[in-house]
Design a binder for these strands. Sequence first.
DNA 1: GTGACAATCTGTAACGTTTCAGTATACTGG
DNA 2: CCAGTATACTGAAACGTTACAGATTGTCAC
Lengths: 350, 350
Amino acid sequence: MDRQRTDRDDEATAKGRPTLKTLAFMTGLGVTTVSRALKDAPEIGAETRRRVQLVAKQIGYRPNRAGVRLRTGRTNVISLVLNTDREIMSFVSDIIYGVSEVLAETPYHLIVTPYSGSQDPLEPIRYLVETGSADGVIISRTQPNDPRARYMLEHGMPFATHGRTDMGLVHPYHDFDNHTFAMEAVRRLASLGRRRLALLTPPPGLTYYGHTLNGFADALSEVGASEVPFNTVSIDHTIEQIRSRTAQLMRRDTRPDGFVSSGAAATLAIVAGIEDAGLKLGRDVDVVSKQSSDLLHLFRPELLVVNENFRLAGSELARAVLGWIGGAAPGSLQSLSAASDVLAVRLPVS
Amino acid sequence: MDRQRTDRDDEATAKGRPTLKTLAFMTGLGVTTVSRALKDAPEIGAETRRRVQLVAKQIGYRPNRAGVRLRTGRTNVISLVLNTDREIMSFVSDIIYGVSEVLAETPYHLIVTPYSGSQDPLEPIRYLVETGSADGVIISRTQPNDPRARYMLEHGMPFATHGRTDMGLVHPYHDFDNHTFAMEAVRRLASLGRRRLALLTPPPGLTYYGHTLNGFADALSEVGASEVPFNTVSIDHTIEQIRSRTAQLMRRDTRPDGFVSSGAAATLAIVAGIEDAGLKLGRDVDVVSKQSSDLLHLFRPELLVVNENFRLAGSELARAVLGWIGGAAPGSLQSLSAASDVLAVRLPVS
DNA sequence: GTGACAATCTGTAACGTTTCAGTATACTGG
DNA sequence: CCAGTATACTGAAACGTTACAGATTGTCAC
């Protein structure tokens, strides 16, 4: 009967990190009281509260995530869902940094949930929702009719999209104003006397493909310029494909004298293609490009650039999901980043 | 006494996802048996095992991570620790993708733990170890005498470093062979008749700074070339700093006729500096650069490049931590990626 | 028929947290 | 002095899992 019960009242044992039990023992209070005291519950005496919080701080108490998660179902995790083979590089790290920046001041951890381009984009989302692996999700490569957004909305999973949808459903998003970008780009080219413009589009299917296309078209008619179709390629294509397609285009009689490019890497390819055709940037043709880090001007000083701040996008997206989780109205968590401006502009909800 | 006890034997309720209890009810077995059966324990009958696993698969049972974590302490999480402001961009996404690729086939999740350059690099590590937030850690920006590696070794936290240490301690790592890279770069420049070479180094303090420097020096004496010191700047400096420093260097009488650059973005700056000084790449000077994506040749076709595959590094690092967690000897989990080759070469342990 | 033993299976407790339903004490108004 | 009530605190149960210590069979040698 004298078993190895060293274990009944040994709360103070130095094993591992402190738990609520440790705190309860040290303060002489019950576990429940300690738990309540730490989260400023009203039914706890002011002095007790202070005392508990002091001791907790002193011994460096940190709630056990597994305990909380098991009990409450809250994971304190935000998941960033990324396409492993299509996602543009620099883009990703900036977004991650932006998200991290915001999460750093919260108990939230950031987990990266990848999916390969061959998979159904919905699969990682289903996984997250079914297993309850995250309290909130951030997705990119948003489509006008996005099954992922619809699915999460249906299943009550808070999320924010990088890019807008167009399904008549309300949800948090952050987007870059690509319509304005395209318009400004065209206006700039027009002001340089360029009249025959080609557009290297975002991947068709994504929402900002439409935004870009519309902005481009709107400005074309505004300035009275014409479009030289840059069919069959988008910034999702390989450098080599874009390069040869550009060269091909530039060898025609009806070649463009201006380009608008939606991606920095693609712009390198466009310029290479232009030069393959024996033409010169700034003389025969001008190029306006988006970029996310300030490197294009080193490549060719003649390039005209518009900066898109992905780090900001990351922060905004993180803030948006957290806001939704915190109970804010999804419609109030939408922001648009101006093309001419590095700052995000919060939209009043319509 | 007839309380709302709808709840004693209702295991089959359709509430939420299935648990062991659900499976136990469905199979008519005990929870313990089900748990053991799912992990192929020997004391479970072959038929029972198959039966349980079949049902589990059918209803899509997934173990609750919080439950496992609380009970076992295993988190099924690998943490990638990143410096938020110094980390080179493209680098990060590739590593993440590489890590993801490997983790995708395991129950592990990847969490990104950021720290800003102003913080003590040890802080995020301490956090992870103290809170037990991960089963394994991947760090980069490794130093010869790295306090983070020492700390994790002391505290029994499995980890892998991107880059080697030099403290006489054994741990998993993956590294790019920068010594060979630098030697090959110098040899290549020498073969082009270049004799006065400058090296744009990695950040001093990091281990591969030394490797690069040594390789450079070794090859210099081998080919009988001399060094033009490129002091005060490394690839951690801003584009502008590198650019102006290069221009300054190139305006001297004793200017270099060859460069070795440890980073692609820095190379853009070097070339810009060269051209600022009115000189021409390929004629007055040659540049060998590392790059992680195949873009530099678009920038200037004359550039000589060596590819460093960060995606591979990510995979190798992930495999290494998992190996260590799985009980493999840390010394057997070290790999070096050849400069001339994109494939990783596993080193026999010395 | 009995004891030993292997083969299968099972209940209980514990991980750390929060919620629920209390209990104990002191104070209030009458 | 009592009921009523506010204040401050508490134990038990539960979330889903696994480890531990059994429990129940059936088989076999003797």
